[in-house]
Design a protein around this nucleic acid. Structure first.
Lengths: 220, 220
DNA sequence: ATTTTTTTTTAGGTGCGACTAAATTATATT
DNA sequence: AATATAATTTAGTCGCACCTAAAAAAAAAT
């Protein structure tokens, strides 16, 4: 079978997240994503290529194979199911679960995953708004975009977040910008790309960095 | 703090299980228990001694320190809580959980453990009848012994098992010897130490090996 | 079209946790 | 007490996943 080490799984996950159709994924980008060094990445890419999980040609950037995609999705499925469990069942806060799920996602047992999924009622979204792949790796299509991409004078509902760090999520909590909240984007500041919005009749300003990491669905 | 590797945790657990007051624990015994080689054990014992988790003197056998005991109990607590979770919440069978709990016991998060404990209702025993240490490492005293230790013509209730392998537990299941069942020990065979017992009016014979791995409480 | 900068790869090294084979110490036997 | 056996330790390797420093290739700038 395909028995991967924790490291290998983390590389596949990183590659999955960095993948964009048509583009090869650079060694540097992967190193940044995994907080490691490019030299270490090159080595691992060779190993993953040997296992037919990606196509590797020197200096060309890497592209995951179907098998690589599938295995990455298994890890992502586990991560998101565990996050859902931690929040919904164990009552952890959405900013407390990422690190723990990073560990739990590597537990190996198909039976465990399927029973967990059933126990949770086959959830479709995790606590950060990310879709949970099903057993076959399918997940609901997402029709959302960053706050930094919507036009002034439009209404939006917060759907999810792109950054899962505790620091960012605690910040959002403080601003009352949590999943499900709706707001109106009033204005985008030209020189720093910061955004002015109205939430519960209160006007507030959020930085470009924050705006880039909040996912919303547009409301008519 | 005391951040241990998975290997180190497994050594501590093995040492905890092999510990008997007064006796030092041998390198060979640990190697057998962990399915590894004595040479590997010696190395690890030195490392654990450096961390003050046990006292090590060449050729003398090893004794865990208070700190070593405490950390072993934390791992055992996690193992047994997860086993309880897997059986009671995810509906896995008692012979399916050991291997999975061997992985889950190494997940690092105090918050997770305490919330899991609360979610499960602070259980006192795991699915194999083993006591679950509480937050302070205390667990209920056990007043039980092996079937191989009780006298003919006594009644007993099955309390737990000493062997947690799937093979053994499936065997017990087939014999209908599960936790809570009561039986009468009729006779012990002298030459092979096998045991004759009556369960639900049915007479059955179990081997010495099986008898040694079933824990019972004596009934008057 | 060169040169400079950036990206990627190679070469060589480290720590961890395992291994084998050989040496040493402890224990048991005669 | 001497010897045989068993347990333990040492010495030397290995694979994995990381690292640094230097070389090579690709991309960008002049």
């Amino acid at each position: 079978m395909s028995n991967l080490s924790i490291s290998e799984e983390n590389y596949l996950k990183a590659i999955f997240h960095l993948y964009k159709p048509g583009e090869g994924i650079g060694t540097n980008a992967i190193a940044r994503h995994l907080d490691t060094k490019p030299a270490s990445v090159t080595e691992m890419l060779k190993k993953l290529a040997d296992k037919k999980l990606l196509t590797y040609e020197k200096y060309q950037g890497v592209i995951p194979t179907r098998k690589g995609f599938t295995l990455a999705l298994v890890v992502i499925r586990k991560h998101r199911l565990w996050e859902y469990f931690l929040v919904e069942k164990l009552k952890l806060k959405w900013d407390e679960v990422h690190e723990i799920a990073e560990q739990l996602e590597h537990i190996q047992s198909d039976l465990l995953v399927e029973q967990l999924d059933a126990f949770l009622g086959f959830p479709k979204l995790d606590p950060h708004g990310d879709p949970i792949p099903d057993k076959e790796g399918k997940m609901c299509a997402m029709n959302c975009c960053c706050v930094s991409e919507i036009k002034p004078n439009s209404n939006a509902r917060i759907f999810g977040v792109k950054n899962h760090t505790s620091a960012f999520l605690k910040h959002l909590e403080k601003l009352n910008l949590t999943i499900g909240k709706t707001f109106t984007l009033v204005n985008r500041n030209d020189f720093d790309q910061s955004v002015e919005l109205v939430l519960n009749k209160q006007t507030m300003h959020i930085s470009k960095e924050v705006a880039e990491n909040i996912l919303v669905e547009k409301l008519k």
